[in-house]
C-alpha cells in the first residue's frame, strides 16, 4: 500500500535548482535510503516531505492525501524527523524531550506521557538515562533520544537526515543498530545516509540523487552489483572505498 508518493517535485533556492522533477513512491514498511554527493538535494527532499521546506512545483501525497491540504502541525505529527545534529531540547531531560510532544501535541496527561516516554527510551536502550540532560549524554545517546522522541509520536513515516554524520566513528554502531531494529519491526523510514552497510542490509530501495535529479533507483543488490549508470557505480564505489 502506497504511503508516500512524490510527484514531479521542483525546488529552487533563488536561481539555484535544488530538486528537479523528483518522483518516487514508498510502500508502508519500506526503508528507502537516499544517497548522493553533498549538495545533491537529499536533505531538501526530506524537508519537503514534512514541509520544513515548501516545494515550488509538483505534489507530495501521504497516504493518499496531498500534504499541502493537511494542517502542517498535523502533517509533522504523522511524519517524524531525526536530525543530523540531534537538535535535542537542551533544557529538558531525555524524558522531557520525549514528553513535550506527547503532552502538548497529543494532549496526554503527565503521568501517561512519562510512562510512554520511558517505554520509548527503553526501546532505544536508554532507560537508565531518562533523567539526563542532552549535554550530559554522548552523541550516540543523544541521537537515540532523538529517535525515541520521533518514535513516541507514533508517526506513519520517519525521516532520517544523515543521523550518523555528526557522530564519532565508535558511536555510529549504536545508532545504526537501533535503526536496524526499527526497520525489522516494519517502521516506514526514509533515510539520507552514507552508511552503505546499513543501506545494503536494511534498505528496500536505494535512490541515487545527483544534482537534484534521481539518477537511479532500485533494490540494493541491483545498485551495488549491477547499476545501470556509470555515475552510480562510481559514487557507490567511492563510498564503499572510504568505509
Amino acid at each position: 500500500m502506497t504511503l508516500l508518493r512524490v510527484e514531479h517535485v521542483d525546488k529552487s533556492y533563488g536561481d539555484e535548482e535544488v530538486l528537479h522533477d523528483v518522483s518516487f513512491e514508498m510502500q508502508r514498511q519500506d526503508v528507502e535510503v537516499i544517497v548522493g554527493p553533498s549538495g545533491s538535494g537529499k536533505s531538501t527532499l526530506l524537508r519537503c516531505v514534512n514541509r520544513l521546506t515548501e516545494i515550488d512545483d509538483g505534489a507530495i501525497y501521504l497516504d493518499g492525501e496531498e500534504i499541502h491540504a493537511l494542517d502542517e502541525n498535523e502533517l509533522r505529527r504523522r511524519v517524524g524527523m531525526v536530525f543530523q545534529d540531534f537538535n535535542l531540547f537542551a533544557h529538558r531531560t531525555a524524558r522531557g524531550n520525549v514528553t513535550l510532544g506527547l503532552r502538548q501535541v497529543l494532549g496526554m496527561p503527565r503521568e501517561e506521557a512519562e510512562a510512554t516516554a520511558d517505554d520509548y527510551l527503553e526501546r532505544v536502550g536508554l532507560a537508565d538515562q531518562a533523567e539526563s540532560y542532552p549535554a550530559e549524554l554522548s552523541g550516540g545517546q543523544q541521537q537515540r533520544v532523538g529517535i525515541a522522541r520521533a518514535l513516541a509520536m507514533e508517526p506513519e513515516l520517519i525521516l532520517f537526515d544523515e543521523p550518523t554524520s555528526a557522530l564519532d566513528p565508535e558511536l555510529i554502531g549504536e545508532v545504526l543498530s537501533v535503526m536496524r531494529d526499527l526497520a525489522d519491526e516494519g517502521t516506514t523510514m526514509l533515510c539520507v545516509t552514507h552508511e552503505m552497510g546499513f543501506a545494503r542490509s536494511a534498505a528496500s530501495r536505494i535512490t541515487f540523487l545527483d544534482d537534484g535529479r534521481i539518477v537511479e533507483r532500485g533494490p540494493p543488490e541491483t545498485l551495488f552489483e549491477d547499476p545501470e549508470h556509470e555515475r552510480t557505480r562510481a559514487f557507490l564505489g567511492e563510498l564503499a572505498g572510504i568505509q
Binding site: 520544513l52 502541525n73 509533522r76 524527523m81 531540547f89 502538548q104 520521533a150
Partner: peptide, 20 residues
C-alpha cells in the same frame, strides 16, 4: 535547530517558542 525540532514533532510556532 531547536525550533525546527520543536516544529518537527508537530508543535506550532508559538508552542515551540513558548516551550523550547
Amino acid at each position: 535547530g531547536q525550533l525546527t525540532a520543536a516544529r518537527s514533532i508537530g508543535l506550532s510556532k508559538l508552542q515551540g517558542i513558548r516551550y523550547v
